[in-house]
Design a protein around this nucleic acid. Structure first.
Length: 496
RNA sequence: GGUCCUGUAGCCGAGUGGCUAGGCAAAGCUCUGCAAAAGCUUCUACACCAGUUCGAAUCUGGUCGGGACCUCCA
């Protein structure tokens, strides 16, 4: 059994083998901290978080590098150079780095809500200006970049003559040349396909650094190349990001790094698909984003309620990362209910006693359960088929609940199978998919109080004092806590 | 215009040519003082038209939708 991933570069699933056995280098394009993260941003972070968790589970030591883009990029190349971050800072009367800090903090907070594992290294673009300049100098000395009026451009045409430019994004350089839009101020470039490595800063530009070509700031793509090379080496295992970054961002990264390091930088390119809303990509340019803070608070016209971050995570994992995922409040409500049901089954499972039974009495159930469990790693191995993992768990959930309710005999399953269920659920649900209990009541004092109420209600019910019994139940409902009467007079509760 | 992806039941979504995912919603039943929860059952879909095949949601061609990238974008 081996882990297969879809490599965007070869356009097929490949068996994953790291360059150094037992170690994996992984780079994921992080956020541009010039604004708040939205639902679309959540997808790559959750997708690659699961990848990181799975690789770790497989026994790898993973160095996970995820950058913070805090230097800003051009609004549009060739136009009056505007640094997004510094531009907005002026409007808001904030120091650029103050803005950067604000959105970085917000981003970190959101990642925490999603239960995303922190990356091993989280480098910032502004912290690696020296490395970027060094890299640009190297590219110039190799003859694949040229300086003009304080800016430096990458010579795409020359590169394409020797290397396969456009392979990752499936682009043909001649098509690019013909279809690149007419832009102002292109005269600096030798060729329209060329992209900036370094941009000369206009006087009003706040974010600027000294360089061999005068004061300026780095181009769009060089930061990722520089930081990936620094922390993962000239040739590393996985580079991830959203599909919309394939071109020009990742294509350019390949070109820069290849010239600089004399080797293709990445073994496996992995891209997540977009989250759509009414079938259209959620994105800044479409003005249809739903920010994470809006999602968590329910404060948005398209939302019928607030959604817990774990609901979002679950929602994302219910689809395959390379498919588009269409957002709607309705779909999130469905995910919320589904996750709640699955999680309760998981909690019920943990309470089931492992008996001394040697053999399952119901061979049919035993076999089915074992098959479902055995498929879980196979699904993960198949390019992270998280929807299938969850589907199998939903197959098992009714069996757990039936055992708990006595509808299936406790010893229907052998103790080893029951133990395997417990281990597998813990492993896949918590460790690999990174899901967490959404209940905020995981607290001994609170549980004690609940037990007290349950005891009182049991007494009342025993005396057929349904007024008291209903009062407890109804008032708890108003507080968002739901009591459930179970077989044999037992009661349990969940947060609605 | 170029390149590519896609069209699966009310909704969200898996789907490797034959074993007809899963979730939500809906309906019925069981359990129950009532309710909720849980369990069982039902609803069996692949845009359209041809073709290949013993057999196609899955392969091929065409038609019609939808979308992405080519420009900052996860």
């Amino acid at each position: 059994m081996s882990f297969k991933v879809y490599n965007s570069y070869s356009r097929q699933k490949e068996v994953f083998e790291s360059i150094t056995h037992g170690h994996v280098g992984m780079y994921v394009c992080g956020p541009t901290v010039s604004g708040e993260s939205h639902l679309g941003h959540a997808r790559p972070y959750i997708t690659f978080d699961v990848l990181y968790r799975y690789l770790t589970h497989l026994g790898n030591k993973v160095r996970y590098v995820r950058n913070i883009t805090d230097a800003g990029h051009f609004e549009e190349e060739g136009r009056e150079a505007e640094d997004k971050i510094s531009n907005k800072a002026i409007l808001e009367k904030l120091e650029p780095m103050e803005l950067v800090q604000k959105y970085t903090n917000l981003y970190h907070w959101a990642m925490l809500q999603f239960n995303c594992v922190e990356p091993s290294i989280e480098p910032t673009a502004t912290g690696h200006i020296v490395e970027q300049i060094t890299m640009i100098e190297k590219i110039i000395s190799e003859g694949y970049a040229y300086e003009k009026n304080g800016s430096v451009y990458f010579d795409v045409k020359k590169y394409a003559a020797h290397y396969d430019y456009g392979k990752l994004s499936g682009r043909i350089i001649d098509d690019l040349l013909e279809t690149t839009r007419e832009l102002d101020g292109q005269e600096e470039k030798k060729d329209r396909a060329d992209f900036a490595l370094w941009k000369n800063a206009a006087p009003e530009h706040i974010m600027r650094w000294k360089s061999p070509w005068g004061e300026g700031f780095p181009g769009w793509h060089i930061e990722c190349s520089a930081m990936a090379t620094k922390y993962l080496g000239p040739n590393f295992d996985i580079h991830g990001g959203g599909m919309d970054l394939q071109f020009p961002h990742h294509e350019s990264e390949i070109a820069q790094s290849t010239i600089c390091n004399h080797t293709a930088p990445v073994r496996y390119w992995m891209h997540n698909n977009m989250i759509t809303i009414n079938g259209k990509k959620m994105g800044k340019s479409y003005n249809n984003v739903i920010k994470l803070t809006e999602l968590f608070s329910g404060n948005h016209p398209l939302l019928t309620q607030a959604f817990h971050p774990m609901t979002i995570r679950f929602f994302i994992l219910q689809s395959h990362y390379r498919s588009t995922l269409d957002f709607s409040s309705e779909a999130l409500v469905a995910s919320e209910k589904a996750m709640k049901r699955l999680w309760e089954a998981y909690e019920n499972l943990q309470k089931l006693e492992v008996g001394d039974t040697v053999q399952g009495e119901d061979a049919e159930i035993e076999t089915k359960v074992l098959n479902w469990l055995n498929e879980l790693p196979e699904f993960m191995d198949d390019d992270m088929s998280t929807p299938k993992v969850l589907a199998n768990m939903f197959e098992i959930a009714p069996i757990i609940n039936s055992i708990k309710d006595g509808l299936i005999k406790t010893n229907a399953l052998s103790s080893s199978t029951l133990q395997k269920m417990k281990d597998s659920f813990k492993l896949f649900l918590e460790d690999i998919l990174g899901l967490q209990n959404v209940s905020a009541t995981d607290n001994e004092a609170f549980k004690g109080v609940m037990q007290l109420l349950i005891d009182i209600r049991k007494e009342a019910k025993g005396k057929k004092d349904f007024a008291t019994s209903d009062k407890i139940r109804n008032q708890l409902i108003e507080l968002g806590i739901q009591l459930k009467d179970e077989k044999g007079g037992e009661m349990s509760w969940t947060v609605a």
